[in-house]
Design a binder for these strands. Structure first.
Length: 925
RNA sequence: GGGUGAAUAGCUCAGCUGGGAGAGCGUCGCCCUUACAAGGCGAAUGUCGGGGGUUCGAACCCCUCUUCACCCACCA
């Protein structure tokens, strides 16, 4: 609003708009206005349309992925709101158990404290403090993106209502035996001291070693080739302290005689059996495997089959515990590894060491190597939950967009392991289970309720489970818990199932699949009808954005701009590998020598849309955002032109069609074509096509042609008042509709301009947000006028061509002759003469009946008509001959191609009639 | 080992059910023409990854190879 100043010049009130678009001036106030006036809340009328936001980490900050994801959701929400839907964008944040706890622990660490120094209660308080302090960050940033979110309904996964939902679900699943407690190997994070789920383990190939150890045979036994030992290969020597067998393949002739015998486990002085199991691959390693049931998932299974002893040799820190020989107790696993290799070598039992690439499992948060570890944990039995979740996608109740993600979903769901949901953390939903001194389990809402439920004696001692639930447990309930479940609320009835989930593929398993399972289980309905899966945002070279690569772009920096020095500091501070800082700094200075300019939210959003084709990652190209910033400027300046030309005039809607020029009708027709394209593209979530259609229309048709073509009318003293009014009306009307068409993608600039443009058309309303979305009226698509204007454009471009190539000054007015054309061409000239003269900057244009009488000219062909620019004396014969020769070549090639094609009877016989007709028409031209 | 996606102009990407290769940025000319130099007008630029096949016709369908990215999987 600030950008419009009303001033008085020469006695006329005119609008003084800034000459270039200044986003920061405009964007800030509008969001506050929208939010303060409650425009984001559901209208309470119309078809319900709802989206639940993928809840960001409450203490997190906005990255490009959020920017993209929320831009898509906001476009959908704004579009449907304008379409008249009762629209809810349900917002909230996630407590992000591990991530948040880690941040606070790091803060404590800086003071030399651990969470245990504080104790559970104090520590959790500290986390809440941290949430209060930084929790507003992410939501503030979401506002900067223009997200039209109903903030009055904001939820948090650990607020009272959602915690109640979590409790309810846990208890019911437990009572139905779908949650159980199990003692088995889990993925143990020795740094965080918690179990994590399979999904939270990232296995990547790293360089390691194969150590070949000799295990001496007992009782003087020997191998087939006479050795008194068996060689095994291992990548983790320290685990030998927990070995309880050696295994060979049952059919392996080399070892058949040894099955049932024993070996002496070196360093431990224990005797362990040699067993036979199919699991062993005789081709791999030495064909003989050491079995460590307590520290390897496969070995654990083997151990169960053979009833082997499970010897846990690790502490929760992954140091060697007291079950191991004294020499190794207390050593860290990797120190123990070194020591063991040395000791084996000393004992003459180290055969050799080979380089070996292996998959190393690391915790996705801590980054340390995960140990398989035997503990008691809580599990969800997923089989019965997965079945209906698979069916819902199979039968089309839920659809993935793009569809091929369904395969990924199915393949995962059909091979689902039970979900380990307990975490040994303090930040999260505490598990509602109590134990008596005999470790009997009681599950309920509170200790009191448990006593009642299980009819326990008042003096029975109970203690609550110390663990909390996996964060994804509460996120899995997101679509319905945020709407008030387990209460049977109006919102649930109205807005659930939600219409679409918009998310990246990386959380299909973590979140999407689990939401489907839980929602079907507890609501007996799907959580959402569509799942729009989009790609990840990478940098311009297709590299993942990461702090260590120093290629991270912050959406807020793109909106507000940032100085080079600040950007360098931001990118190089707090790096995990400080030695990379110099490199990052150099690259940053090279890529952004002047820092990053303020592109504004609308330009950033438009860039996201333009890159939002489905099924691939998005390489964020700085060139694109600059282009769309320029687009904003184009819109701005087109508006300035329109306003200048309607300022001080009473603009009325013309009563009939008579007052409109041909191009007035044409631009309206083109607008309808565009609206149709937009509507179709949104229906299939192709925002790249939406953005392209609007961009093309507004810049290449409205600005490049229509605005220029309006000048001959508005600046013509002979044009009638009615004609001028019709053109002014069309300028405004198309602008205003374009703004509404564009608003879901570019909310700010459209609101800013619309506020001024709408009243000029007599349109009332507090905000463009709540205006109806323009409907495509295909009946006013006029193909006749289309081809006429195409003709006009063709002639103009032809003349400009001649100017360019013949070096005729753009300033000079020239004479043009048209000849050899059809009656239609002649008519087109008659109707469009004034446009032609103005846009091609002509002195005159006339029809030449006798082509042979043409003076020496430079020529362009439009259809079968010739456009001649007489060049008397001026013509550069050689240049013109060269140019025409080139033109002729092109034409002849085309004629050759077409007649060849049409001469081919196979083509004429086989191709569809309309295709043949089209080719014939082209040839005749 | 299994699976998915990608390979199109110098760069980032479109190209719908096969029927004359496109956009933005960049490049090269000419223009500060009273909306916009963040602009206007014009121009150049592609064996559509390689090879084979189907077809009258293939960037698009089939086969195969190459390269890249990602996902899943227990090879000690």
């Amino acid at each position: 609003m600030r950008a419009f100043l009303t001033g008085s010049i020469c006695g006329h009130e005119i609008l003084l708009m800034e000459k270039t678009y200044q986003p920061s001036e405009i964007e800030k106030s509008w969001y506050e206005t929208w939010e303060a006036n409650g425009y984001f809340a559901p209208s309470g009328q119309g078809t319900p349309y709802s989206i639940a936001i993928p809840p960001p980490n409450v203490t997190g900050s906005l990255h490009m992925g959020h920017g993209f994801n929320n831009a898509i959701m906001d476009a959908l929400i704004r579009y449907h709101r304008m379409k008249g839907c009762n629209t809810l964008w349900q917002v909230g944040t996630d407590h992000a158990g591990i991530a948040t706890q880690m941040v606070v622990e790091r803060q404590l660490q800086a003071q030399g404290l651990t969470r245990h120094d504080l104790g559970r209660e104090k520590f959790v308080e500290k986390v809440w403090d941290w949430k209060a302090e930084s929790g507003g960050n992410i939501t503030r940033q979401l506002r900067r993106l223009g997200s039209s979110i109903d903030w009055t309904r904001e939820r948090f996964t650990m607020d009272e209502g959602l915690s109640k939902a979590v409790e309810e679900v846990f208890i019911q699943l437990y009572d139905e035996d779908l949650i159980y407690r199990g003692n088995r190997l889990v993925n143990w994070d020795p740094k965080l001291h918690t179990a994590i789920s399979d999904l939270e383990v990232i296995s990547e190939e790293e360089n390691g070693y194969f150590w070949y150890f000799r295990y001496p045979l007992s009782n003087g036994d020997t191998t087939a080739d006479g050795k008194n030992y068996i060689t095994i290969a291992t990548t983790r020597p320290e685990t030998m302290l927990g070995d309880s067998a050696l295994a060979v393949h049952p059919e392996d002739e080399r070892f058949k005689n040894l099955v049932g015998k024993t070996v002496q486990l070196p360093l431990c002085e224990r005797e362990i059996p040699i067993i036979a199991d199919d699991y062993v691959d005789p081709e791999f390693g030495t064909g003989c495997v050491k079995i460590t049931p307590a520290h390897d998932f496969n070995d654990y299974e083997v151990g169960k089959r053979h009833d082997l002893e499970v010897i846990n040799i690790l502490t929760i820190d992954a140091a060697i515990n007291d079950a191991a020989p004294k020499a190794y107790r207390g050593l860290d696993r990797f120190d123990a590894r070194k020591q063991i290799v040395r000791d084996m070598e000393t004992a003459g039992l180290l055969d050799k060491i080979e380089d070996h690439k292996l998959k190393v499992p690391r915790g996705d948060r801590s980054g340390v190597i995960i140990e398989p570890y035997l503990t008691n944990q809580w599990y969800v039995a997923v089989e019965s939950l997965a079945k209906p979740a698979i069916e819902a996608v199979e039968n089309g109740d839920i659809e993935f967009v793009p569809k091929n993600w369904e395969n990924t979903y199915f393949s995962w769901m059909r091979d689902l392991q039970d979900w380990c949901i307990s975490r040994q953390l303090w930040w999260g939903h505490r598990i509602p289970a109590w134990y008596d001194t005999d470790e009997n389990i009681y599950v309920g809402k509170s200790e009191a309720q448990v006593r009642e439920k299980y009819n326990l004696a008042a003096d029975l001692e109970l203690r609550q489970d110390e663990d909390v639930l996996d964060t994804w447990f509460s996120s899995a309930l997101w679509t319905f818990s945020t709407l008030g479940w387990p209460e049977d609320t109006e919102e649930l009835k109205t807005f659930h199932p939600t219409n679409v989930l918009v998310t990246a593929f990386d959380i299909i398993f973590f979140w999407v699949a689990r939401m489907i399972m839980m929602t079907l289980k507890f609501r007996k309905e799907i959580p959402f009808q569509k799942i729009y899966i989009h790609g990840l945002i990478k940098d311009g070279e297709g590299q993942k954005m990461s702090k260590s690569k120093g290629n991270v772009l912050d959406p807020i920096d793109l909106i507000d701009g940032i100085e080079l020095e600040k950007l360098v500091e931001q990118r190089t501070s707090g790096m995990m590998q400080p030695q990379m800082a110099a490199k990052v700094e150099k690259a940053t200075r090279k890529q952004f020598p002047d820092g990053i300019p303020a592109y504004g939210t609308d330009a950033l959003r438009y860039t996201f849309y333009s890159l939002a084709s489905t099924g691939r990652d998005i390489n964020f190209d700085m060139g694109r955002i600059e282009g769309y910033r320029n687009f904003c400027n184009k819109i701005w300046n087109a508006t300035r032109y329109v306003f200048m030309n309607v300022e001080g005039e009473q603009v009325n809607k013309p009563a009939g069609l008579n007052d409109y020029s041909r191009v007035d009708i044409w631009i309206q027709s083109r607008l309808q074509v565009t609206l149709k394209k937009v509507e179709d593209a949104i229906a299939i979530y192709r925002f790249d096509l939406v953005s392209q259609a609007i961009y093309d229309f507004f810049w290449n048709e409205y600005c490049d042609w229509y605005l220029e073509l309006s000048k001959p009318v508005l600046w013509d003293d002979n044009a009638s008042a009615a004609q001028k009014n019709a053109t002014r009306y069309t300028l405004l009307d198309v602008l205003e509709k374009s703004l509404r068409m564009l608003h879901p993608l570019m909310p700010f600039i459209t609101e800013e301009i619309w506020q001024k443009a709408a009243p000029m058309l007599g349109i009332e309303g507090p905000t463009i947000m709540l205006q109806p979305y323009p409907e495509a009226d295909t009946s006013s698509i006029d193909e006749t006028v289309d081809s006429e204007v195409e003709w006009l454009k063709g002639v103009i471009v032809g003349i400009r061509n001649i100017r360019g190539e013949m070096n005729i000054s753009p300033a000079s007015n020239i004479n043009v002759l048209l000849t050899r054309g059809s009656e239609q061409d002649k008519n087109n000239l008659a109707t469009n003469q004034q446009f032609l003269i103005k846009l091609a900057k002509l002195e005159s244009v006339s029809w030449l009946d006798d082509p042979e009488s043409a003076p020496p000219s430079s020529m362009q062909v439009v259809g079968d008509m010739e456009v001649l620019v007489p060049m008397a004396g001026l013509i550069d014969v050689d240049a013109e001959l060269a140019r025409l020769g080139k033109e002729l070549d092109k034409q002849e090639k085309e004629i050759g191609r077409l007649s060849g094609k049409l001469g081919n009877t196979k083509f004429v016989d086989n191709a569809p009639l309309e295709v043949v007709a089209k080719e014939k028409e082209k040839l005749s031209n």
